[in-house]
Design a protein around this nucleic acid. Structure first.
Length: 502
DNA sequence: GGCTTTGATACGGCTAAGCG
DNA sequence: CGCTTAGCCGTATCAAAGCC
């Protein structure tokens, strides 16, 4: 019998087939974006755990990848008789093994007892964390570790970085001892059934479903999907599919095709998606779209932000996962039809917020609508800047008041079959302006890639030449996003008489 | 009058989709 | 990961209608 790692047991909890594939066909797994190489700027949550739990630096960090499992188990057993913090200590029992992020000794007369802390970069305790700690404590205790308590440490998103490398308070602990210790029978059953699953000759027959994405994206999804008949018109193209009465119907009729959905269960928007997808015809209420935009005159502005966030803040006065704007692109359309594009991009590696706010105020003028796509995003960023920089607040809030959201107007009045139930700008643009293409862009083609590119640019070892290249790619991407809005506005407002290029 | 039923409306919790 | 918004749905609330 092989030893199943805690992560494999967690995979089993998500889907037995996933565990089977992990063990027997790992080559079928596709790496998610998160596991690919990325540029670590600042500290990881693990670094902070070292600082917080071992400020004196007396702890020992074990490394199973480098030294092998056997060696780490042996060293862990030895260290548990001493009294210094241990990081990545390993424990094995018959059939299962686990590594603990942090082990802290509590002195009680002779030999120490131990406090285990699992460190997570999420901002709250999730159900799968509870499973995680239950498995962890089961394995450790059955391996003979005198465990006094087990806690989960997660990020406190209300905490603000005071600067100077002081990260005390970033992590928030939640004690799960009672719960974890109370689930030992349950955990032993998971381990037993996981082994039964692994021992099977053939892979379990489980269809794709919600478990493929939640709580973690499964790398075998494409493989599993390839084993299933492909619906010509997948049901998931319908918007809000899991929130209305369709939910139960779909559960009772797996592998449902869009063609076979009962009309009486569809809301207006779902019905529109169904009929226009099947007919292949565009839906466009030009009159209503023009009506919605009628009130807004020229000059008009078109605005798009790019932001970055850090689980562990690197800039003083910012919070974990706070979205910090480092780039904007703005296009101005004057009364005479004159077109003007400007951009802001700070790749210095310093907090770009203040320059960003000042530059934004400078380029927005004092009047005219400012079109954005999904205004909640830009609006929230502007509001946050106003809170941080009180002297700029009046100007920033005046800009926020001028935002006009093209997203709801598009959603209410336009649908092209190629959108597949999505009204994101990237789904709408190819239909409205097929001559513009994100795929033709070098390097940066979406918001996630913009964040990666930003991190690479501010990474200390990145060379100047590469930084210049990234700068050009970011400018091109953000500019296209903004110009896409110009074209969309033109289309919705019925102003195809105007011509200009990006 | 006093009771229940029904239908309209308001509110809060929850999820999904959009942005990064 | 966070935030915002919209939509759905259950519950609460209340008035009108129906009934004895």
């Amino acid at each position: 019998m092989r030893n199943l790692s805690k992560s494999k047991l967690i995979a089993f909890r998500q889907c037995p087939k996933r565990l089977w594939l992990e063990v027997h066909r790992p080559e079928l797994r596709e790496d998610s974006a998160a596991t690919k190489a990325s540029f670590n700027v600042g500290n990881t949550v693990g670094d902070i755990a070292h600082q917080v739990y071992d400020p004196a630096g007396k702890g020992v960090l074990l490394n199973a990848q480098r030294d092998g499992f056997g060696e780490v188990f042996k060293r862990s057993t030895e260290l548990l008789n001493s009294s210094q913090p241990i990081f990545e200590a390993g424990f094995a029992i018959e059939g299962a093994l686990a590594f603990a992020d942090v082990m802290l000794p509590i002195k009680r007369g002779g030999k120490p007892v131990w406090r285990m802390v699992e460190v997570k970069s999420s901002t709250s305790v999730k159900d799968y964390h509870r499973d995680d700690t239950a498995i962890q404590s089961f394995i450790a205790r059955n391996a003979g570790v005198p465990l006094a308590s087990i806690a989960l440490a997660h990020i406190d998103s209300d905490w603000m970085y005071p600067g100077d490398g002081d990260y005390s308070g970033l992590l928030k602990e939640c004690d799960l001892t009672e719960e974890a210790f109370g689930r030992e029978v349950e955990v032993s059953e998971w381990i037993a059934t996981a082994h039964k699953t692994v021992a099977k000759k053939a892979e379990p027959k489980i269809g794709t479903g919600e478990q493929c994405a939640s709580p973690f994206a499964c790398g075998f999804f494409d493989y599993c999907q390839s084993q299933e008949p492909q619906a010509e018109y997948p049901i998931h193209w319908l918007p809000s599919i899991r929130t209305n009465s369709l939910k139960e119907y779909i559960a009772e009729h797996p592998a449902l095709d869009l063609r076979d959905t009962p009309d009486e269960l569809l809301n207006e928007l779902q019905h529109r998606v169904k009929s226009h997808t099947l007919s292949g015809e565009i839906y466009f209420d030009a009159e209503s779209a023009a009506e919605a935009l009628k009130a807004y005159k020229l000059p008009a502005y078109f605005l798009d932000f790019e932001t970055i966030q850090f689980a562990v803040p690197i800039w003083k006065g910012t919070r974990p996962y706070q979205q910090i704007p480092f780039q904007f692109s703005i296009h101005r359309l004057g009364r005479a039809g004159k077109f003007d594009a400007k951009a802001f991009l700070d790749l210095s590696g310093n907090d770009p917020s203040h320059y960003f706010a000042e530059s934004l105020i400078e380029v927005c003028g004092s009047m005219g609508p400012i079109y954005v796509y999904n205004a909640g995003f830009e609006g929230a960023r502007i509001y946050e800047l106003a809170l941080r920089f009180r002297h700029l607040a009046p100007d920033l809030l005046a800009i926020k008041d001028r935002l006009v959201d093209l997203h709801p107007i598009t959603k209410a009045n336009y649908y092209h079959p190629s959108q597949q139930g999505s009204w994101s700008i990237k789904a709408v643009l190819p239909a409205v302006a097929p001559d513009l293409s994100y795929e033709a862009l070098e390097g940066v083609q979406n918001g996630g890639m913009a964040m990666e590119a930003y991190l690479e640019a501010i990474y200390p070892n990145t060379k100047g030449e590469r930084k210049d290249e990234i700068e050009q790619q970011l400018l091109a991407y953000c500019g296209l996003d903004t110009f896409a809005m110009v074209r969309l506005w033109q289309f919705l407002a019925g102003r195809n008489d105007m011509t200009f290029s990006a």
